[in-house]
């Protein structure tokens, strides 16, 4: 999604979110990631000024203190950014890929099923299709990408072919590099 993205040129508008809307967003995020509930005050402090940054191609970013926390395509799900995922790795569902896949993911490739089912890979939780997952790697501590499952984990194991997880946001992509300033 962010292969061609330039934070300087792609910002359309930037606006302070009304507190009522902020509450709304908050509850939506909590619906999506119920494990975040204990830390939501840390992630989105009630008093903080939440900015909604609308970008081209229908991408919306949510920022607090000039830090991008979540992003969204159209009106869809809220994705955490990698920096947020690094801070709260346990709040989001995880999958793990084997070592060979790291390089390809870091250049933006989608994750094929064999990369998720081989020896170094792991899928501990049973996840349905279209879930947002943090992608971790064999032998590494931190996540390297955020993905969207294209099939359920069950199917990934059984079919073991084609794209298992779509790569949405990965380390060193333009979104990772961009920082928002006021």
């Amino acid at each position: 999604m962010f292969k061609k993205f330039n934070i300087k040129e792609d910002i359309a508008t930037r606006s302070l979110v009304k507190s009522s809307v902020q509450r709304n967003i908050r509850s939506k995020i909590l619906d999506q990631y119920n494990k975040l509930e204990t830390v939501i005050d840390e992630v989105l402090p009630k008093k903080s000024s939440l900015y909604l940054v609308k970008c081209h191609e229908h991408i919306n970013l949510l920022t607090v203190n000039n830090e991008i926390l979540f992003f969204q395509h159209f009106d869809g799900l809220y994705y955490p950014t990698l920096r947020l995922l690094h801070k709260y790795p346990d709040a989001f569902p995880k999958v793990q890929v084997d070592k060979g896949a790291i390089k390809k993911i870091l250049s933006g490739a989608n994750i094929m099923c064999p990369g998720l089912t081989s020896k170094g890979a792991r899928m501990n939780e049973d996840l349905p299709a279209n879930t947002i997952v943090g992608v971790f790697a064999e032998g590494k501590e931190h996540a390297l990408a955020i993905g969207l499952t294209k099939m359920s984990t069950e199917d990934i194991k059984n079919i073991n072919k084609d794209i298992g997880v779509e790569n949405i946001h990965y380390l060193n992509d333009p979104l990772w590099k961009s920082n928002i300033e006021t």
């Binding site: 494990k35 975040l36 204990t38 830390v39 840390e42 920096r83 690094h86 801070k87 709260y88 790795p89 346990d90 709040a91 790291i102 870091l106 590494k140 501590e141 931190h142 390297l144 380390l171 060193n172 990772w176 590099k177």
Partner: peptide, 21 residues
Amino acid sequence: VSVSIAKQVIYCGVCSLPPEY
């Protein structure tokens, strides 16, 4: 699964990735 504490992550000053990458 404790989610309560924010993990401190060190990022490389040269390439901005976590050092292991």
